[in-house]
Design a protein around this nucleic acid. Structure first.
Lengths: 210, 210
DNA sequence: GGGGGTTGAGAACGAGCGTTCTCACGTGCT
DNA sequence: AGCACGTGAGAACGCTCGTTCTCAACCCCC
């Protein structure tokens, strides 16, 4: 599953200089395709983006696309995997940046992270929620990816709350706030939900720990 | 199943003659189709349900379907309109039921309403969020319907909070909690988010109102 | 009784999908 | 040089979709 370089091929003939937009190596090509697919799927929805669109946008021929991935669904799952890792590591970085200010500041940094995200011009909600709504009923693998992503976030919040001396219930409440802010911001089209969620979180934290 | 006679199907003024499953009058037929479409779209997603599926499930021929509605999108929008009215009126009833206990109880009744909903076997998240994720990028009308539904809920919460003497910010926070509970429950597959959101709401209300 | 309008059943249509196949070309090995 | 391959470009395939069309049967009012 790790799709890593373990085993097969990967002769890494990487010496040569990459010519055009489409990378040469197999791993680099996979990453390139997933990156392009992520942008397209997130902006337009998975079902609205065909393999032909992905081909033109990535510059990778259909022949090679199906050499790199066995099916469209596998690309979708790879996109979700990458998105999860990106989201998780970026959040962790934002939280770590305020570690010196203590656990309460770290918890609130989560909502500042959301605020920055919501203000992105391309923001269109949580990709996992969107994809779940679109494919969750038909694809158990997609539903599982969304479930695992959310469970991972809840666990992360729980660890932060635990470090602050809060209860598991507080962690769940803070996660629900973050969740609600994402959908509210996505549908309303404005980012103000981040600030509202942040103030609610501060109230809950202070009530629980104060 | 073929939905059988659809059981107690509202009152038919001219109920008689052929006891077919599909209602006779034009308005009744439209309502019947929208009801069947709602169930199918909610369970499987809009794009996964074709007009042929809707035909077999409703017992209304394609010919008549396109006589009743100009396009599939118009059916989707009608489904959303009906779902909004149902949701809104049911919530209002649940809130009114505890009017005697005061505005705080009315606010919290919102989350009890969510708890009942989440425990429904067929619960699959908020239909507006799901449809927004699926079609929001492609269909501005669908995006607008979702936006209006959420705005309506936020306004309703604001009126309840106002009656309780709370601020607009508190109303927004409580709405975000309800929103987050819905997506959390949908993706996690469990209904516990309702209780967690309810406790968070109680904390926020008490902190704001003393 | 007979015609007009409406209906149901389903074929037809054009488009788009995911996936596979063809074929000519270039490149690296021997 | 020769040969086996991997590749790109895109046609082809089989399928599904939303929508429209055909045609025969039926109903109501004259």
């Amino acid at each position: 599953m790790s799709s890593g370089s373990a085993g097969a091929d990967t002769r890494d003939g990487d010496v040569e200089a990459t010519a055009a937009s489409a990378p040469r190596g197999e791993d680099a090509a996979r990453e390139h395709v997933v990156q392009v697919a992520d942008a397209l799927y997130y902006a337009r929805g998975v079902q609205a983006v065909g393999m032909d669109d992905l081909r033109s946008a990535s510059g990778v021929s259909l022949r090679r696309l199906y050499g790199l991935f066995p099916s469209k669904e596998s690309i979708v799952l790879e996109v979700l995997r990458r998105r999860h890792e990106l989201w998780t590591s970026t959040l962790a970085a934002a939280v770590s940046a305020v570690a010196a200010e203590g656990p309460r500041a770290q918890l609130l940094a989560t909502y500042d992270y959301l605020a920055v995200w919501f203000d992105d011009d391309d923001f269109r909600g949580c990709g996992f929620i969107n994809t779940f709504g679109e494919l969750g009923a038909a694809s158990p693998a997609v539903a599982a990816a969304a479930r695992e992503h959310k469970a991972s976030f809840q666990a992360y919040m729980a660890s932060l709350v635990d470090a602050a001396g809060g209860s598991a219930d507080l962690a769940a409440q803070l996660a629900i706030l973050a969740e609600g802010a994402q959908t509210t911001a996505a549908i309303a089209g404005t980012g103000e939900a981040a600030g509202q969620a942040r103030r609610a979180a501060a109230t809950l934290i202070d009530a629980a720990l104060g």
